[in-house]
Nucleic acid binder design. Structure first.
Length: 893
DNA sequence: AGCTTAGCGA
DNA sequence: ACGTCGCTAAGCTA
């Protein structure tokens, strides 16, 4: 019997349900009627807009099933109960007549079912279909301009609610509703009943707006609760509510959508097929739709070929004059504009701007001053939302040309990462292929050494194509993010962090080149000394950096005992060398280990020297979309792995110095952040109490595990429980613990049992994390960052166990990463608000390094300490330790 | 160019 | 087989 494993990455069935009248009206008002009429005088703007919008959604959302619901003119149970229902609406414009019928004809030709039901409204059909879809395992998208649809929002159902026009239709999920109306979607109808809905001619309680209604609902649970407690509501609004209670009850009856209707179609009937070509041809001939005809057939031709998705034509707009450029940019006011840079050999040469189907190309070298000024203002305008792929890199490139980038509304690199944090690459072309299903052409690469003057012209088309791809990806990934509840994380954490990281990278950290050179000499001397010693010990030369050659020396020449097996023979790693030294005391091993240590440190110093720039500083790059747990990583160079543990290694930290014009360096780091998160997540009373009482955690745990008084915990006991406590967060086994502590497996097992006997909630928590992740397909941090681990259900035991350890660790490491990011955002905000000149330079997972401007030390220390301690309210206090000094080493404590 | 081994950090 | 997440360098093989 075969078993299908469910993937949680994305559902393969997606149902798109459209409120036909609602969207037809949107389209009607978005396009001028006078521009869309056939030669016989039939207006077609609503039809055109509707079909265009539908095609855009098919392209962006890729539904597998589609249906359109329409109201009928006949009375509904609502108008029967309440004669004035939807009364008072303006008369339907004359130009609208006949267009609904035409839309239905197009739908029929496209083999998309139109559903109406006598006595009910389209909204009830949406409700019924979304319920059916959810039950059948679909991801459901409801397209409606009617707020009543919000009550349908669930984990699996989103509402696409048009903001304005037909191009900006953001997905609304529970978080979005809550942010806007302060109640969960399931309470939205209660709120609407109190507030009233003018579009339906349902008057609410006078004097009661969304804020008051939300306050009541959150106080009493729901509308029934409000009505039960109606007499305890004081003041004028209370009187008003009591006076209008009957209309509230009526409103609630009327705005409840019916999800259990008998429909004339089944879900299977809504499966998206191919259009009837002949019918479409005839219909579009009559409607005089030609560009739309091509778009429609291109779309379905591509869908049919599967691998070959046709991409919409780009309407390239000339921006040769200031007026044209202004026009392009202002036509998109309040609308997101995608910006994509063309880079040749690391140099910015031009950029493409794109919105919907319109795009323009600007070559930087050919830009006159007036247009440059317009572009510069556009890019820097915080209130002009922009969409990019890798906006931090773009900020650096633009900065080199004196341009500032702000107003980043979306970054597809971030979106793709939040949806699939385990993916190693999020390159644009890969994402387009994976999510949108077509191959994005690469811009022509320049021939080595020659800068072709024609090249810039050749770049316009591919760069516009890339901009279009970013635009389409953004729409698709935004929906995916909403579905996976990553939208708030993007909006409130990752996107705001981009400019903060940019500033840190731009600032860099000052280093003493002199000390680096001294250290290089020093470590070189040590390397040479160790090398000579090693050669002397064996009587000949050998490449001490070659594990392969070392294996020959150790295991053949010297006949030392074999170490742990690896692919290429036997390992020569530090731990094994140490073991060999203990058992054989061979002098070669001493020299080899000294060589390893010294050459590693020299290599670190050499690496740093390569990255010192003209300003005497090192500018690392933070990768925001690499670590699957949500951490940042640092590269070119990596400043998150500068040695600290060994005495010799620590000396490297002295080369990182306070910059000219600044007073000192401040470092602030979290104390035991991951253990505190473990205490919070597990809710273990013992751990929580220990932290709340400010005890030495490892001593406290040691006293419980070994059943002795805290003062009798020996340093050996303490280090054992410390290793165990940390190991637990990584999925440590008793075997691993025994190896680490060099004790027997039995002893390790007993140790763990004693630990869990005293801190049972930790075991319960760790088990529940894996269980939950196996069930849902993902783990989640305190702040809702998910990591998808499909291999928890793998039949390969090895893969499964790796995934289990990742599942144990991800919420802990990830929550810590979230906390630090929140702290960084708040520190950055307050440094700017307070007009401080001090600036954040480095983040090392649980530590922030700040360069302090003269006179600001006390205030900034206080500020950073406060924001790190208050990044979130956990069940245990967050403790941080500040330190200051002229070098990174001196600032550490 | 890509893999393997090694070692540094949280 | 046996603890998570990263980055870089060197040797070696292709």
């Amino acid at each position: 019997m075969s078993e299908t494993t469910t993937t949680h990455e994305s559902s393969d069935k997606r149902l798109l349900i459209i409120d036909g009248h609602s969207m037809a009206f949107r389209a009607f008002y978005a396009l001028p009627a006078e521009n869309f009429a056939t030669s016989t005088g039939q207006h077609t703007n609503a039809v055109h807009g509707f079909v265009s919008m539908l095609l855009t959604m098919l392209r962006q959302q890729k539904p597998t099933h589609v249906a359109v619901a329409f109201d009928l003119d006949t009375p509904t149970f609502r108008s029967t109960e309440y004669g004035e229902y939807k009364g008072g609406r303006n008369k339907t414009p004359e130009e609208f007549y006949g267009q609904i019928d035409l839309i239905q004809q197009v739908m029929k030709a496209m083999n998309i079912p139109c559903i109406s039901l006598d006595g009910y409204e389209a909204d009830d059909i949406l409700a019924t279909l979304s319920k059916q879809g959810e039950a059948a395992g679909f991801e459901v998208l409801v397209v409606s301009g009617d707020r009543d649809a919000f009550q349908l929002i669930t984990d699996k159902t989103l509402v696409l609610y048009p903001k304005k026009g037909i191009s900006d239709i953001p997905p609304m999920d529970a978080e979005a509703i809550e942010a806007k109306y302060l109640v969960r979607p399931e309470r939205y109808s209660d709120l609407a009943a109190l507030v009233g809905e003018s579009a339906d001619n349902l008057p609410g309680v006078p004097g009661v707006g969304p804020k008051t209604a939300a306050k009541w609902l959150n106080l009493y649970g729901d509308l029934d609760g409000v009505l039960e407690n109606i007499d305890s509501i004081k003041g004028k609004v209370g009187d008003s509510l009591r006076e209008h209670v009957e209309s509230v009850k009526r409103n609630r009856r009327l705005n409840q959508l019916l999800g259990d209707l008998e429909l004339p179609v089944t879900l299977d009937d809504t499966e998206l097929g191919t259009p009837n070509r002949e019918e479409i041809e005839n219909l579009f001939d009559a409607l005089e739709f030609n560009t739309l005809r091509k778009r429609l057939f291109d779309h379905f031709a591509a869908a049919e070929e599967e691998t070959q998705v046709e991409v919409a034509e780009i309407n390239e707009i000339s921006v040769a004059s200031v007026a044209e450029l202004k026009e392009f940019l202002s036509a998109g006011k309040d609308q997101r504009i995608t910006v994509h840079l063309a880079v040749v050999g690391g140099e910015l040469v031009g950029l493409a701007l794109f919105r919907e189907l319109d795009g323009c190309w600007l070559e930087l070298g050919a830009l006159d001053e007036p247009r440059r000024a317009v572009l510069s203002e556009f890019l820097a305008d915080e209130n002009q939302p922009k969409v990019l792929h890798d906006s931090k890199a773009a900020m650096h490139l633009l900065h080199q040309h004196g341009l500032t980038l702000a107003g980043i509304a979306d970054d597809t690199l971030i979106s793709a990462y939040l949806i699939q944090p385990d993916r190693r690459s999020h390159e644009l072309a890969d994402l387009v292929q994976y999510h949108l299903g077509y191959a994005l052409a690469k811009p022509p690469a320049p021939k080595a050494g020659e800068l072709d003057l024609q090249l810039s012209g050749d770049l316009a088309e591919p760069t516009l194509r890339q901009a279009q791809a970013v635009h389409d990806l953004s729409a698709y990934l935004d929906t995916e993010m909403a579905q996976k509840h990553a939208d708030a994380l993007a909006r409130d954490m990752e996107l705001p962090l981009i400019p903060v990281l940019f500033d840190m990278e731009q600032a860099g950290v000052a280093v003493s080149r002199e000390r680096l050179l001294e250290l290089r000499e020093h470590f070189t001397t040590l390397v040479e000394r160790a090398t000579a010693g090693a050669y002397a010990a064996i009587g000949h030369e050998v490449n001490l950096s070659s594990p392969k050659q070392l294996q020959v020396v150790l295991f053949e020449e010297l006949q030392l005992p074999k170490t742990k097996k690896i692919k290429t023979g036997y390992t020569t790693d530090a731990e094994s060398l140490q073991d060999l030294l203990i058992s054989t005391e061979h002098p070669f091993l001493v020299a080899l280990m000294e060589y390893r240590d010294a050459s590693k440190l020299r290599q670190t110093v050499d690496g740093l020297l390569k990255f010192v720039t003209q300003d005497g500083r090192i500018h690392t790059t933070y990768a925001q979309t690499v670590a699957a747990t949500g951490r940042l990583s640092s590269l070119n160079p990596n400043l998150q792995n500068i040695p600290i543990r060994s005495e010799q290694g620590r000396r490297i930290r002295d080369v990182f110095v306070v910059g000219e014009g600044y007073e000192t360096l401040l470092t602030v780091d979290y104390s035991q952040i991951e253990m505190r998160i473990m205490a919070h997540l597990s809710g273990d009373e013992g751990l929580i109490e220990a932290y709340q009482n400010g005890e030495d955690l490892h001593r406290y745990v040691g006293s419980r595990v070994f059943d002795v008084a805290p003062e009798d915990v020996t340093s050996e006991m303490r280090s054992k429980v410390k290793a165990m406590s940390y190991g637990l967060a990584y999925g440590l086994s008793s075997f691993g613990l025994s190896k680490q502590l060099k004790i027997s497996v039995d002893e390790a097992r007993t140790l763990m049992k004693d630990y869990f006997d005293r801190f049972g909630a930790v075991r319960t928590y760790l088990r529940s994390v894996v269980e939950q992740a196996r069930r849902d397909g993902y783990t989640e941090t305190i702040f809702g960052r998910r990591r998808y681990l499909p291999e928890l259900n793998s039949s390969d035991r090895n893969l499964r166990q790796i995934a289990e350890r990742a599942a144990l660790n991800a919420p802990i490491q990830g929550s810590a990463a979230d906390l630090v990011k929140i702290a960084m955002l708040n520190v950055d905000r307050r440094l700017r608000e307070g007009k401080f000149s001090s600036r954040m330079l480095l983040q090392v997972h649980d530590e922030l390094v700040v360069e302090i401007a003269p006179g600001e030390l006390d205030a900034v220390t206080e500020l950073v300490t406060y924001e790190m301690e208050h990044a979130a309210q956990l069940r245990v206090p967050l403790d941080v330790q500040p330190g200051t000094g002229a070098t990174w080493h001196d600032a550490a404590h």
